[in-house]
Amino acid sequence: MDKLTMTETIVGVKLAKDLSWESMASDLGMSPVWLTSACLGMNSAPPDKAAAIAEYLGLGPDVAKALEAFPTKVWEQAVPTDPLIYRLYEIVGVYGDTLKEVIQEKFGDGIMSAIDFSMEVDKIEDPKGDRVLLTMNGKFLPYKSW
């Protein structure tokens, strides 16, 4: 089974069982962001987590093997049209250079890892309108000189 078929299968079962990523992650003891990313085919799952996800959803070993497979991380190069995803692109477009400057001023010349990385999505209730809190936590990787 390939990653696309795996994702379609998982999402279909999730919808049929009226599950949420949050409830699945809570039941499985996993991060909702990581679980969602793995189920959407953008991360590989270790064998124990892949088996737990497949078993939880009532799916077979072919889904578990697909969850374990290393993904090819490719996405559309064009600006997305989905408003939420577009706004994230907009944030990087407007604040990307600023974030680079501030991070490198604090840490030196390097990057934030997207491998040694975690992310949380939280809801902050506010009378003026609920707020989205994205927390990204990545290890700083300095560039080396040789």
Rank of each mutant, 00 (worst) to 15 (best):
T72G: 12
C39R: 01
A51Q: 13
L35T: 07
S26C: 00
A50S: 04
P47R: 03
S31A: 04
D130G: 04
P32C: 02
E101I: 09
F107H: 15
L15C: 11
G12M: 06
S145H: 14
I111T: 10
C39T: 04
E8L: 10
L88Y: 11
V121T: 03
K17Y: 09
V79L: 11
S44M: 12
W21Q: 06
K123C: 09
S26V: 00
Q77M: 14
M1F: 08
D48H: 13
K106G: 02
K100Y: 10
M30Q: 15
W75Q: 14
A54V: 08
E120I: 00
Q104S: 12
P32S: 05
F70V: 13
G96V: 09
K73N: 14
G96I: 10
M1E: 06
I111P: 00
G41L: 03
V94D: 14
K73R: 15
M119K: 05
V11L: 11
K139N: 07
G110A: 13
I53C: 07
M119H: 01
M24A: 08
C39N: 07
L141D: 02
D82N: 12
M42V: 02
G41Q: 04
V94N: 11
S113V: 07
D48P: 03
S31P: 06
M119A: 08
A52M: 03
A25G: 03
P83A: 07
D27A: 15
M24K: 01
L67G: 09
L67E: 08
G108K: 13
S31D: 10
D48F: 06
P127D: 05
L35D: 07
L141W: 00
M24R: 01
L141C: 10
S37G: 10
K3S: 15
Y86S: 09
M112Y: 01
L35Y: 05
A52L: 05
E8Q: 13
T36N: 05
A78E: 12
E90L: 13
L4S: 04
Q104N: 15
L15M: 13
G138S: 07
L15F: 08
G93H: 10
W34V: 02
W21C: 05
R131N: 05
Y89M: 08
E68P: 05
L59M: 05
S44W: 06
A64M: 02
Y95I: 00
L35W: 05
V13I: 14
P80K: 08
T5D: 14
S26D: 11
L88R: 05
S26A: 08
F107E: 15
E90N: 08
D2R: 06
K128D: 12
D27H: 15
W146D: 15
G12V: 06
L88N: 07
Q104K: 09
A114D: 12
P32N: 04
A114Y: 10
N137H: 03
